[in-house]
Amino acid sequence: MTALSVRDLSLAALAVRDLSLAIGRTNIVDAISFDVAPGEVLALVGESGCGKSVTAQAIMRLLPAAIRQTGGEITLGATSLSNLSARAMRDLRGRQIAMIFQEPQSALDPLATVGNQIAEALRQPLARVRAEVRQMLVEVGISDPDRRIDQHPFELSGGMCQRVMIAIALIARPAVLIADEPTTALDVTIQAQILALLRRLAAERQTAVVLITHDMGVVADIADRVAVMYAGRVAETGPTAAVFATPAHPYTALLLASIPRLSDVPKSALAVIDGQVPQPADYGTGCRFAGRCPRGDRRCVAETPALGPVADGRLVACFHPVGG
């Protein structure tokens, strides 16, 4: 992938190269590549079925049994994850790379106290690391930590559970944090708190964050760079400000135009993308957006556009990029 030489790869905390995933013989993620530097937030954004969540699971090596990795390489610092034994991978999880989920209440063990669950991430009994765990609760903004440390998840609200998840994920100071729709189940005022917390902790601890989301508002809020995914491929990637200001891929442009904003004209027609996201069995050759794309032509249906550089350090997979 020469196209990715835009960035110095030796700086990356996590690098994904040409990752492909399949269910049986049906390809669902097709040769996607991205990397994240320490302290940087990369957003993988896309609609349901675009492959963003399975990509996160592939990085954690937590894929469901039906899904196989058919190609590509994932490297964490200098370690290649693809060749690690299951045991070595288990040691890595939590220490080097951690994950938080959409439903914090169901991701926590209902029978264990908050303190015990955080201590478990350090593989230590709570009694030995109590001070450290308490400090972590303070850092994730939980008030009254001396009481909360001995409470069970059902005694906490959804927002507080997500703070506990973040504490569990970050206490061992992993290099990389995967956040899979971390605020989707939360209310907007709580979402604002959690996003501010993630942004602050990533910067302070120099954690590389891969943020999986469908919400362009969340991306605009905290992501340094963004990779827009469509039907198992990266359509466009680059610095968030540039991608949002002048989207180069027609899908990105339409997606951004279809969002109601606090600044638009009420009741005006929103831009729509005709048709629906294709099912993996119907991907065919060529650009997967071709069937819905206003700029699509015969070449788009026949050939797959490679991810190539355009202005501002961006890459786009399109034969007819917007403004190009």
């Binding site: 005022t189 604002a192 996003l195 605009a220 600044s263």
Partner: peptide, 14 residues
């Protein structure tokens, strides 16, 4: 509530 809605425009949002 209005302030908490992230605007899908990084220039505005930040």
């Amino acid at each position: 509530l209005i302030a908490a809605v992230p605007d899908p425009d990084p220039a505005v949002q930040r």
